[in-house]
Write a protein that binds this DNA or RNA. Structure first.
Lengths: 118, 118
DNA sequence: CCTTTACTAAAGCTCTTGCCTAACTATCGA
DNA sequence: TCGATAGTTAGGCAAGAGCTTTAGTAAAGG
C-alpha cells in the first residue's frame, strides 16, 4: 500500500476477520475484559491482544485499563460509518435501476417505430 | 486461518481495499467493462483483473464476457448481507443501552438503601 | 491477413497479517 | 512478601495480499 489506511480501509479490514467479528459480537452484548473476549477464541492471549488493537485502530472498540483489568466496549459510530458507505452504494444502484425502468417504460410507450433491437 | 473464508470474511475483505471500493462506486452508477473500471486506477490492468476476481469471489460483482469485452455489474444482495451483520450488532448494542438505562432508572427510584459499592 | 483492442495467464517479488512462544510488568489476595 | 492473575512486549515464522512485467489468446476492423 502506498498511503496509510484511511478510515474505511481499516474499518472493513477489521471486520474481515472472524475472530474480530466474534469479539464485536460479544461486545455488542456489553463491555468485557480482554480475557473474556479471549476465552471462546481458539488462540493465544497475545493474538487476541493484536486483534483488539486492530479493532481499536479502526475505531470500532474503545478500552480502558483499571487496575490490572482492561475493559473493552464497542464504539458504534464506526460501525455506522461502514454501514453508510454500503448504503450509499445500494441507493445509487437502486436509483439507477429506477432510471432504467423509466427509460424502458418510455420506450414501451413510444411503440416500436425505431429499428434498434437488442 | 482455521477454515476457508465464509461469506462475511470475503465480503469485508473485498470492501477493505480502496481500489475495489472505487470499482464498486463506479459500478453502482451502472455496468461497465473492465477497461473502464481500470482507467481511473493507478495500476496495471492485470492488477485490476485480480481485484475484480476478489469482488466476484465475494459475490459483490457479476460479469459476463461478450465478444472481447467483459461487462461487470454490481450484485447488491452481497452488500445487503454485510449491512445486515453490521446492523444486527448496532441493534444489540442499542438494546443493551436501553436495558442499562432501565436499570439505572430502577436504581434511582429505589434510593440508596443498598450498601453495595464497587 | 494483419493490427489493434481487450482481456487473460504465469511467474515473481515485497510487504503485511496472523499466529506462535517466551519473557516481562503490574496488580490483587492471602 | 509470595504467588497467582491479567495483561503486555518482543521476536520470529508461514502464508497471503497486492503489485509488477512478460507473454499470451481472442475478437474487431481495415
Amino acid at each position: 500500500m502506498l498511503n496509510q489506511s484511511p478510515p474505511l480501509d481499516r474499518l472493513f479490514q477489521a471486520l474481515a476477520d472472524p475472530a474480530r467479528r466474534a469479539m464485536l459480537e460479544r461486545l455488542a452484548l456489553g463491555p468485557a475484559p480482554v480475557s473474556e473476549l479471549a476465552r471462546p477464541l481458539p488462540m493465544s492471549l497475545p493474538s487476541v491482544m493484536q486483534h483488539l488493537s486492530v479493532l481499536e485502530a479502526a475505531g470500532l472498540v474503545r478500552s480502558e485499563k483499571v487496575g490490572r483489568v482492561r475493559t473493552c466496549a464497542i464504539a458504534p459510530e464506526a460501525l455506522s460509518q461502514a454501514e453508510r458507505w454500503i448504503n450509499a452504494r445500494r441507493i445509487e444502484w437502486e436509483h439507477r435501476l429506477d432510471r432504467l425502468g423509466d427509460y424502458l417504460k418510455t420506450m414501451e410507450g413510444k411503440g416500436e417505430s425505431d429499428g434498434a433491437k437488442d
